[in-house]
C-alpha cells in the first residue's frame, strides 16, 4: 500500500550550500540536545527532559520547507523542531532554566516552548492536544485567505488519542492547509507502538479520513524534505491536508533517566548505525562536497555557539515574584 520514501544515494537533493545549511541545522540540534542533558544533570532545570537525539532529520526536513509565518504545534519533545523553525537557542536554554529571558519568562518550561514570531504556537504536555490546535491555525489561514500552512508534529502514541481522529476528520471535510507529521519512533512512551496499534503503518489511519498519506525514512533528511515539500505545496494550493509518517528512532529513553527496559542495547546500536546526521554527513563526503575537516570545524563552531547560548541562559535573571500573577488571562 505504501512505499517508503528515500532519497537518491547518488546525488544531493539540494545545492551544495543548501545541503551544508541543512547539515548545520542537524548538528545544532544534536549539540543542543547533548548540552541539555548536561543541563539536566547539573540540576539547573526542573521536571523531565525529553530528548530528540536520533530524530533530528524529521524536524529539519519538514521545517526547512516552511516559511517563517507558517504555523507549528509540537509535543514536549520539541526543541528540535523549534531550532529547525528558527528559534533562538539562547531563549530555549533560558526557558529550560526557568529564567526571565526564556521564551515564556520561565513560566512555561521545556514542555511549553512558544514563539509566536516564528509561528511556533506552543509545545504541549498532552501528546495529541496540539493536533486540533494546528488544524485551527490552518482554519484561520484558509479563512483569512493567506497562503500560510500549519504543521503539527506528534508521536506514534498520539495517534491513539481521540483528538487525533477528530482533527483529521475536520481537516479533511474542510480541506484545511495542514500537514500532520507523525514521528514514529517505535515507542509510545515506554511501550512498543506495535503492541498498541494493529496497523503496520500509522499512515493507514489517515486514509480512513481520505487524507493523502506517505511514509518516509525519517532518518533520511532529504527524503523528509521531499515529502514535506510536496505536502506543504498541496496545502498552500488549497489541496487540503497531508499525513506524513516518518519512520525514525528515539536513540535515548522517553525521558532522561528512563531505564529503557522495553528494548535491547543491540536494537539501539543497530539504529545508531542509521544515525540521520551520520548518514547525511557521509553522503556529502562520499559525493565529494565536503571533507571530514570541514565537518569537524563546523561541529566545533556550533559547539561554541551552543556553549555561548548556555552561558547566556546561565547569566539570565530569575523572574520577579510579581510575574506569578501576570499573563493568567
Amino acid at each position: 500500500m505504501f512505499n517508503l520514501e528515500v532519497s537518491d544515494p547518488a546525488k544531493l537533493l539540494f545545492s551544495k550550500d543548501d545541503s551544508l545549511r541543512i547539515l548545520e541545522q542537524l548538528i545544532t540540534i544534536r549539540k543542543f540536545e547533548e548540552k541539555s542533558i548536561e543541563l539536566y544533570k547539573s540540576g539547573l532545570m526542573g521536571g523531565s527532559l525529553h530528548g530528540y537525539i536520533g530524530q533530528e532529520a524529521v524536524a529539519v526536513g519538514v521545517c526547512s520547507q516552511l516559511n517563517k509565518d507558517d504555523y507549528l504545534t509540537v509535543t514536549y519533545r520539541s526543541r528540535g523542531q523549534a531550532i529547525a523553525k528558527g528559534a533562538s537557542i539562547e531563549k530555549l536554554f533560558a526557558e529550560m532554566m526557568g529564567k526571565v529571558d526564556g521564551y515564556c519568562k520561565g513560566k512555561g518550561g521545556p514542555m511549553h516552548i512558544t514563539d509566536l514570531e516564528i509561528g511556533f504556537l506552543g509545545a504541549n504536555g498532552i501528546v495529541g492536544a496540539g493536533i486540533p490546535i494546528a488544524t485551527g491555525a490552518a482554519f484561520s489561514a484558509k479563512k483569512k485567505g493567506t497562503s500560510q500552512v500549519s504543521v503539527t508534529f506528534f508521536g506514534d502514541g498520539a495517534t491513539n488519542q481521540g483528538v487525533f481522529h477528530e482533527a483529521l476528520n475536520l481537516a479533511s471535510i474542510w480541506k484545511l492547509p495542514v500537514v500532520f507529521v507523525c514521528e514514529n519512533n517505535l515507542y509510545s512512551e515506554m511501550s512498543p507502538i506495535a503492541d498498541m496499534v494493529p496497523n503496520e503503518h500509522l499512515a493507514e489511519r489517515a486514509l480512513a479520513y481520505h487524507i493523502p498519506a506517505v511514509i518516509v525514512d525519517g532518518n533520511d533528511v532529504e527524503a523528509v524534505c521531499k515529502v514535506a515539500q510536496e505536502a506543504i505545496e498541496r496545502a498552500r494550493n488549497n489541496g487540503g491536508p497531508t499525513f506524513i509518517e516518518a519512520k525514525t528512532y528515539r536513540q535515548q529513553g522517553h525521558m532522561f533517566g528512563d531505564a529503557e527496559t522495553y528494548r535491547t542495547k543491540e536494537e539501539v546500536n543497530e539504529w545508531k548505525k542509521k544515525d540521520p546526521i551520520q548518514l547525511f554527513t557521509n553522503k556529502q563526503i562520499e559525493l565529494g562536497y565536503i571533507t571530514d575537516e570541514l565537518v569537524e570545524q563546523l561541529s566545533h563552531e556550533i559547539e561554541l555557539k551552543v556553549e555561548k547560548a548556555y552561558q547566556f541562559a546561565l547569566n539570565s535573571e530569575q523572574p520577579n515574584y510579581d510575574e506569578i500573577f501576570t499573563d493568567v488571562f
Partner: peptide, 13 residues
C-alpha cells in the same frame, strides 16, 4: 533550582 537570588522580592503583591 535557583542559583541566584530573585531580583526583587515584592511580598506585598
Amino acid at each position: 533550582v535557583s542559583i541566584q537570588e530573585p531580583k526583587v522580592v515584592q511580598e506585598t503583591t
